[in-house]
Amino acid sequence: MPNSGRISGNVVSARKGGASFEIIVKGKAAHSGVNHADGVSAIGGLALIITELHALTDYETGVTTNVGLINGGMSSNTVAAEAKAKLDLRYITKEQMVDAMDAIQAIVDMPRLQGVTASVRLISAFHPFESSMSDGLLAHYQTQAESLGFSVEGEFTGGCSDAGFTSSMGVPTLCGTGTVGAKMHTEGELCLLDTFVPRTQAVAKSVLLLP
């Protein structure tokens, strides 16, 4: 199924790339009342790491970092021996991807608290879908859409898709050619059914009439 079109009616001509990481921090357990000083908090170490990871966000360049899930410890009266976090990274170019991944690794590797160790592993990654790989195909699609009675523009979005893989291989790519929709990944997710037929026709004509 094609990715849904934007609520504006536009198709997607460029996307951010994204990567997901798991960070594991290990400390030393201790009773927080009896022998607090003997423990080293993995949660405390993770908190320091998260602060620096979030500082990598730069809205002007389009790079964002988000630790959206954390867990650790066993009880409130125990100094936590382990803590984990899931990190989301977004970027616009391959160069940003490489630089950000290097920065993440350096932050995790940096010693902060004696007795705390940290590691990071890449879970998944999407290449960015850069606009240079959609220009020609977008113009072709727009011609077919106009022949069917509707106009459409290309639009940039921060979400990832497989379009990043095809475009990174040098394959002309266009995304978001499905039915117009909105509020993805929420209970209010929707698609406009009256856009199903014309959008499908535009894709079919675009494929059949490729130069």
Results as ranks from 00 to 15, higher is better:
V120M: 09
M101A: 00
A118C: 06
V108F: 06
G115E: 11
A125T: 12
V120P: 03
D99K: 15
Q114Y: 06
A106N: 14
L122M: 14
A100H: 07
V98I: 14
V116C: 07
L113R: 10
Q105Y: 10
I123A: 12
Q114N: 10
V116E: 02
P111D: 06
A103S: 15
Q105M: 05
I104W: 06
A118N: 05
T117N: 11
S119H: 04
F126E: 01
D99R: 12
A118F: 01
S124H: 14
T117R: 10
D102M: 08
D99I: 12
I123K: 12
A106T: 13
M110T: 13
D109N: 13
D102N: 13
A106I: 07
V116D: 02
A103E: 14
I107P: 00
A106M: 11
M97H: 05
R121H: 09
V116W: 00
V120K: 03
A118K: 02
Q114P: 04
D99H: 12
D99Y: 01
I104T: 13
T117P: 12
D109P: 03
V120H: 00
A106V: 05
V116Y: 03
Q105S: 09
M101Y: 02
V120R: 02
M110W: 07
V116P: 01
P111F: 03
A125N: 05
S124A: 11
V116R: 00
S124P: 02
V116G: 00
G115H: 12
S124Y: 07
D99S: 12
A118T: 04
V120Y: 05
S124E: 11
Q105A: 13
A118V: 01
A103V: 07
D102V: 07
L113I: 15
S124F: 04
A100D: 10
L113H: 08
M110H: 13
D102T: 13
S119F: 03
A100L: 11
V108E: 02
F126K: 01
A106Q: 15
D99Q: 15
A100I: 04
S119C: 01
L122T: 03
V98S: 06
A103Q: 14
M110G: 03
M101E: 14
L113C: 04
A100C: 12
R112I: 10
V116M: 03
D109T: 05
R112S: 08
